[in-house]
Amino acid sequence: MSEHPVTLVVNNRRYDLEVGGRPGDLQPTHTLSYTLRETLGLTGTKIGCDKGECGACTVLLEGEPVLSCLILTVECHGKKITTIEGLEDPQTGKLDPIQQSFIDSGAFQCGFCTPGMIMSVKALFAGNPSPTGQEIREALSGHYCRCMSHYHVLEAVAGSVPKAGGTDE
């Protein structure tokens, strides 16, 4: 072990990463999105712009939605991270209701923005189980989708609201 190992808990699995300059080591310049994709092989987190402008790389850090391209991995030491791969039931493979609702509503075209959007919705529901339409749109407002699947995404999110009854507008 190096002197300053970085420990991440990603999708309930613990990773101890060595900081150093050898291939495979965690370097201080590595962003969380880089580490997730290139070191841990969790390529479900997509990188659209790598500059915090498109929302594609959204993951949950301690339950909060963050842009993983703007966070250094070394900053995440000891933190819990959830990526798109962590949403389904690890035993049964059953999808999260949000994932299922995206399928039912056909809420994607090319699908490159889909994982990031689903993570933002997951975070929204965790803090607010019956969001209004306005709150849903705000939660998604940082996500770029050039195919324009927005209308079906809104339908999917409305269809997976954990506690119905939130007032729309």
Binding site: R37, K46, Q99, I103, D104, F108, F112, P115, I118
Partner: peptide, 19 residues
């Protein structure tokens, strides 16, 4: 009918070039 690649897309399993 759900798209054939629907489950892959929502699970982050679809393979794009950068993957």
């Amino acid at each position: 009918v759900p798209r054939k690649d629907a489950a892959d897309l929502v699970r982050g399993k679809a393979q794009f070039i950068d993957d």
